[in-house]
Design a protein around this nucleic acid. Structure first.
Lengths: 148, 148
DNA sequence: GGGCTAATTGAAAATAACATTCAATTTCAA
DNA sequence: TTGAAATTGAATGTTATTTTCAATTAGCCC
């Protein structure tokens, strides 16, 4: 059994908030963690149903919201309008391929630092941020070149 | 009459694409430009109706899409899930206040440059990007402090 | 272990934002 | 002016997400 840390973290959150520990919540957490990031509710639902065929969409939505509140997941809105969830951990930013949808993560301390300087200039207190570069990944760029 | 440049720009786009110049399109463009950025379709619709009570939502949606194609506007998806349009011009990024919704624009050549270096590292071709810092603006931060 | 009560579930219906359809209207080139 | 093609807007369709509500379940108390 993996994801012990996250399971315990969820259990703690449930307990602290007088919420109940259900197999649905456990299953959804597992499915989400196994998928390793940037997953939609629909994808989570599909994965969960493989093991637990009668867990509904609704429960997936609700549970993902709960995982966000619990600090285990966070919502992301890329430019296709569908909400995706990612594992809440060290902050990272994204390269998003507009052709194949591939998502690459990156981090850059220099940019993070510059951001804060800019915010300072406007007396703005930064709580979180998003930084996404949209374009074509290597494979798609080659494919596009080959087609022309 | 202001916004002459944009009007001419739209007229040119319509002509080049064998599209027609209608008063609805002109009115929507004017309402959009007067609003100065980060506006939703609904807000545009409200503004347009003040002058032209029988222009429908549909026409606003379609026209905003057209203005995007024409390069006069561009779509933005902040974290509330509603599409907003902004005037297409020099690229800039955003500070978004989570309390009052205020949106401040900023630019930073250093960050732009660093971005490209990162993309290079992944053989990624950047077509566009978004960079948003979410937090509290000065006024809201003070308000929050006063409440506590 | 059984009872109890509040939390949870899931199917269905509701909502919100946006897209499409289609008949009626309008633009504009000839 | 005319007529074909584009446009409009009301209504309807979609898609993603949320709410409702009756039925079920978790987990404390005995």
């Amino acid at each position: 059994m993996s994801h012990e840390v996250e399971k315990r973290s969820l259990a703690q959150y449930l307990e602290e908030n007088n919420l109940k520990h259900t197999k649905q919540r456990e299953a959804i957490l597992a499915a989400f963690l196994e998928a390793s990031g940037h997953i939609t509710s629909e994808e989570i639902h599909n994965r969960v149903r493989a093991e637990h065929p009668n867990i509904g969409y609704t429960t997936v939505y609700r549970t993902m919201k709960l995982l966000c509140d619990a600090g285990l997941a966070s919502e992301r809105h890329f430019e296709d309008g569908v909400t995706r969830y990612e594992i809440e951990q060290e902050h990272h930013d994204h390269l998003v391929c507009l052709r194949c949808g591939k998502i690459i993560e990156f981090e850059c301390a220099m940019i993070e630092k510059t951001q804060l300087e800019i915010a300072d200039r406007y007396q703005f207190r930064v709580l979180r941020h998003r930084h996404e570069l949209y374009g074509h990944c290597d494979a798609c760029e080659r494919a596009a070149a080959a087609t022309e």
